[in-house]
Design a protein around this nucleic acid. Sequence first.
DNA 1: CAGGCTAGTGACAGTCGCTGACAGTTGACA
DNA 2: TGTCAACTGTCAGCGACTGTCACTAGCCTG
Lengths: 208, 208
Amino acid sequence: METLRERKKRRTRESLLRAALELFTTQGYEHTTVDEIAEAVDVSQRTFFRYFAGKEEVAFAVQNITEAAFVAAVRARPPHEAPMKALRQAFLEGWDAIRETVESIVPVELYLRMYRTIESTPALLAAHLRRSAATEETIARLLAEREGVDVDTDPRPRLAVAVFAAVIRVTERQCCVREDFGPEALRTLSAAHLDQVGSALTGNWRGA
Amino acid sequence: METLRERKKRRTRESLLRAALELFTTQGYEHTTVDEIAEAVDVSQRTFFRYFAGKEEVAFAVQNITEAAFVAAVRARPPHEAPMKALRQAFLEGWDAIRETVESIVPVELYLRMYRTIESTPALLAAHLRRSAATEETIARLLAEREGVDVDTDPRPRLAVAVFAAVIRVTERQCCVREDFGPEALRTLSAAHLDQVGSALTGNWRGA
DNA sequence: CAGGCTAGTGACAGTCGCTGACAGTTGACA
DNA sequence: TGTCAACTGTCAGCGACTGTCACTAGCCTG
């Protein structure tokens, strides 16, 4: 059971979050001031900073959740599964669950719009990539543990995760550029790209 | 022939650059103010911003040069070479030339120290990853042109570059952590890691 | 070589992200 | 009901960055 205080807090936080995403996606991240966000929810600027460490953090609040969900999905894969297969399955099968989690906080449509804003705003893209790098590290350690190898001496965990993440990023970007950025497109495209990694690494591509 | 004005300008710029890197690497990026950098060279803060768009830009001034050199090295590879091989050779063989280029601006030792500072400063790491992403895009287009494929419909150029970049990044990070961060270590390690990508992607790793 | 032109600079004021300090208010709980 | 802790607003300040304006130093022409 939630106390009144907690309810109020949660409401303020979610209002700030939604207002921020709405402003970011409509008028751009850089052109949105923290004062504006606070004003839209009718709290002081200082209060905003009590809920979010900074302007950047609110932009990634939803991604935080999806990333955590993905890590959990990897952790839940059967331990006998081969590493790359586990990553692949966690991503493809976990997609719907992640989507539901997002929907409980903000409309998925707003989330997708925000994703595009991140891709097209240098400062946010930079932060996104750094955060991805941190997640990669987490998953690399997870895989290493699963497979019983040492993450600091055996490069394979980090290599595998780095390659997987690279493929996902390429896919995400392609989805962002196109108009048909739906859950299905991302799933089928990433499956296709994961299949093509092998052939992309060997030989030249002219002989079709 | 360089005019007096141009000489003065170049000297001011390089002084600012060296002073900035020196301060960043000794007392940290965050704890160094633009005022300090300007003061160290005895110019006004406003002048600093006339030479560098921001505090971040001066931190990556040297990386700018090395990245450009790498892109040029890839462009110079014989066109019949397979894509991944071209990347690999450009990186391994171009290393010495890049090193010389750096030395002409700042001591290599300072460059390496700065590299570590970048890796260990969140804001700089984020910027570094974003810049790397931009370079990846450049090289992907270059490879696509070489191979005569369309970069927007064929995912292989971006996939190959992304994988290559991921391997290099993993290697760089490992070199940063260790103490023996010399030119040799990076070269041999990246070669080894590039060889291991294949085996990292297939099967599980337990059966040694 | 005198005088004008312009690039480069410094000084100053202002915006925005962000933080610390302090005081007021509101919900929780005895 | 009164106390306490959590939450909030106000204010003052720092650092990154920008616009403006006046001034100086190098250059270029007559």
